[in-house]
Nucleic acid binder design. Structure first.
Length: 599
DNA sequence: TCTATATCACCC
DNA sequence: AAACGGGTGATATAGA
């Protein structure tokens, strides 16, 4: 297992070089690009400064000096050090330069070092400098330079200033490297650095979007909303324009004599759940509930789509506590409501595939804890039903069809345990008594007792050592204000993140077009003619990544392929998409009629 | 009119 | 009206 892990961390070692850094490289280049970045487009590099820390050599290149390859090495004998290196690799890809084979990214390592600290330091270069009490330029100066770069026209006039600024950042990063060196687990840091290169490749690909449809939706968004509101609100009178007024709703409730639940602070509770319960009690509220639900997903579109119709945005690797990516939900198609995913459409003769690990966290829990019953349940292919059978809640011959309700109940139970739900929470979720929920939770504890013993141990160790970490060293500081549920969930979620990162590295390095990572899934793209074989390769990679991260335990995956001219459909959002499309075409037809009458 | 807060909706 | 982990973001309202 350790041998496998090390092969994943290519090129690690601990030989001292001339500057006292425990890094076995002939050259160590700190690299920083300045570049223009526009929403949805590829980065446009302006300049690069690279500083070699052993020899002290510095190279400064302005954009008119860029050649087809960099004037310094980035092969496996050389280490490239960055601060947020996905940006540097993005620039390299834009220039047709090679992707460094060994990367150490200090942003990532700073995040890992300070992850979970109650001081919650931000993680910019200046924040890292301040953390280590290193002198650096002021935030004001940095903002000034950024404005200079953003103001496009004057860039070439400010060549020397911008290069000087870039060099300052490089020297700051080099200084940071020296102070951070003793804190680094180099082998694992290189694995994380490797992922930053993979991120750049994925960000560059982007997700193919039906841009014309996106445009039509945007033009008619207000009309769509108005139409929906007009149809429903005449019976309620709670909207003013496009906004729901709590005051008006309160008046309505008083008129109708309906007593409504309130939140802790006395406001009307307007959540989905409350509406659902209340609409069941008062069926006349159902249309209003539907309306609110629909409007909530028809918000202003901010999707970052380039001129070529690709959704490209920063994936923000290592941003979350568990090391997951955290792209902006509004800019990233996979952060949008499920029906919007039908905007994903491969171009002519192309295809996309969405591949996700089956019950990833459940499998990880089984592997990490070594619980045999859990492993058996995972291997059965239907963990929820297997669990029901193991717990004697269903007969051995039970199937998904014959015991749907029981299976649903056990599925909710498994998810509840993953998130450390209480009996009250589970009771609410299942709509059963707290007593019943307690019984179910006990059943889980009894059936998967090895898992629970392991989970207890994890919590204890975390509280004693004041930190918790994954196999590959992603760590979380455990302060006095910890949520114990966070700790117990961390191994599953953070290990899942490790697995995804490794799979993305292997796939992108093999030349597979990974267009998006999605926590326990990836979307890939290929020619329609070869997508099936590429999906198989990707699934093999995902299986291998699971084995590497879980010490031999293999997770299976499911794939959904979509070929041009079809569009991607998420089953959770298919109906809503149809509905929106129907309304949209109606509105457009009415508009056309209008125009022809006017003419 | 702007900002902060509360609450909610969505993703895995 | 909610003791479910990790997130981002929109909206309504209160307050400066």
């Amino acid at each position: 297992m350790i041998a496998v892990a090390e092969s994943a961390m290519k090129g690690a070692g601990a030989v001292k070089n001339g500057v006292g850094l425990a890094l076995p490289y002939h050259e160590i280049w700190v690299e920083d690009f300045e570049f223009i970045s526009r929403e949805g487009e590829l980065p446009a590099p302006i300049c690069v400064v690279a500083h070699e820390v052993i020899s002290g050599r510095t190279i400064r290149l302005w954009r008119d000096q860029f050649q087809s390859s960099p004037p310094y090495r980035s092969d496996a004998d050389v280490l490239i050090v960055t601060y947020y290196g996905s940006a540097e690799v993005g620039c390299r890809l834009a220039l047709g330069w090679p992707v460094p084979e060994r990367m150490l990214d200090l942003f990532t390592e700073f995040r890992n070092l300070t992850n979970g600290k109650s001081a919650k330091p931000k993680s910019g270069l200046l924040d890292a400098m301040a953390w280590f009490r290193l002198a650096s330029m002021s935030v004001g100066d940095k903002d000034l330079m950024r404005d200079l770069i953003l103001s496009n026209q004057t860039i070439d006039h400010n060549r020397d200033r911008i290069l000087d600024y870039c060099e300052q950042d490089v020297l700051a990063t080099a200084a940071l490297l020296k102070v951070m060196m003793p804190t680094l687990d180099v082998a694992r840091a290189l694995l994380r650095g490797r992922y930053m290169a993979s991120v750049a490749r994925m960000e560059r690909c982007g997700v193919p979007i039906d841009k014309p449809l996106l445009g039509r939706l945007e033009t008619r968004r207000h009309a769509l909303q108005d139409q929906l509101i007009a149809d429903v609100d005449q019976a309620f009178g709670v909207y003013e324009g496009r906004s729901f007024k709590r005051k008006r709703f309160e008046d309505y409730l008083r008129r109708e004599g309906i007593v409504w639940p309130r939140t802790e602070k006395g406001q009307l509770s307007l959540s989905k759940g409350t509406f659902k319960d209340m609409a069941q009690l008062h069926p006349k509220l159902e249309p209003l509930r539907q309306l609110r639900k629909t409007l909530a997903t028809l918000t202003k579109n901010k999707l970052a789509v380039g001129a070529d119709g690709r959704n490209r945005t920063m994936l923000s690797p290592f941003r979350s506590k568990t090391g997951r990516n955290q792209p902006s939900n509004s800019k990233f198609i996979f952060g949008q409501p499920a029906w919007m995913r039908s905007l994903i459409k491969p171009e002519k003769d192309r295809a996309v595939a969405y591949i996700d690990w089956s019950q990833q966290e459940f499998g990880i829990a089984a592997a990490l804890s070594g619980d045999e019953a859990m492993t058996e349940a995972y291997r059965s292919g239907d963990p929820y039903l297997s669990f029901a059978i193991q717990a004697d809640a269903a007969p051995p011959e039970a199937t998904k069809a014959s015991h749907k309700d029981i299976r649903d109940q056990f599925k909710a139970l498994v998810l509840a345990v993953q998130y450390q739900m209480t009996a009250e929470g589970l009771a609410r979720r299942l709509g059963c008594s707290v007593f019943k929920a307690e019984t179910l939770l006990r059943l889980h504890r009894r059936t998967f007792s090895t898992f629970w013993a392991w989970s207890d141990r994890i919590e204890n160790i975390a509280l004693v050592t004041r930190s918790i970490r994954t196999m590959f060293g992603w760590r979380l500081d455990v302060g006095s204000d910890v949520n114990l549920r966070t700790i117990r969930n961390f191994p599953m979620q953070a290990t899942g993140a490790e697995m995804l990162r490794l799979a993305c590295c292997m796939a992108t390095e093999e030349g597979i077009n990974v267009v998006a990572p999605v926590h326990d899934a990836v979307m890939i793209e290929d020619a329609a003619a070869s997508i099936d074989s590429t999906v198989k390769r990707m699934q093999a990679i995902m299986a291998e990544a699971s084995r590497i991260v879980l010490g031999g335990f293999e997770l299976s995956s499911d794939a959904k392929v979509v070929r041009w001219p079809n569009r991607y459909v998420d089953e959770k959002g298919g109906e809503m998409f149809q509905r929106v499309m129907r309304l949209l075409t109606e509105l457009e037809a009415r508009r056309l009629e209008h125009e022809s009458v006017a003419a």
